[in-house]
């Protein structure tokens, strides 16, 4: 997959307006606003097993997704940051 950076945007009096119409302080194609144009990786396909991702909980201990959800369905969200 060849990744391409989305840089289309116009400067307005409220900030940079991106290709989709969102207005934000950063110019599209810079810093966290480095969005892909066209295809981009989204992880294992629908139908595949959810991998056991290794990470920490907010309280510190190591986390095991499948042990924690204990046979219950889950929504797993990957987000940018809780800080900025």
């Amino acid at each position: 997959m060849r990744l391409e950076l989305e840089t289309r945007g116009t400067r307005t009096d409220k900030g940079w307006r991106d290709h989709d119409g969102f207005v934000g302080p950063r110019q599209p194609g810079t810093g966290p606003r480095s969005d892909p144009r066209g295809d981009f990786p989204t992880g294992p396909e629908v139908g595949a097993a959810m991998p056991d991702l290794r990470c920490l909980t907010a309280d510190g201990p190591a986390f095991d997704l499948h042990a924690h959800r204990a046979g219950r369905p889950a929504v797993f969200i990957f987000f940018r940051s809780a800080v900025w």
């Binding site: 992880g43 139908g47 595949a48 219950r72 369905p73 929504v75 797993f76 969200i77």
Partner: peptide, 13 residues
């Protein structure tokens, strides 16, 4: 790339 996946009780996406 932010997003969300839904996982079934059996552990399938």
């Amino acid at each position: 790339y932010p997003g969300a996946v839904v996982v079934s009780a059996e552990g399938t996406i």
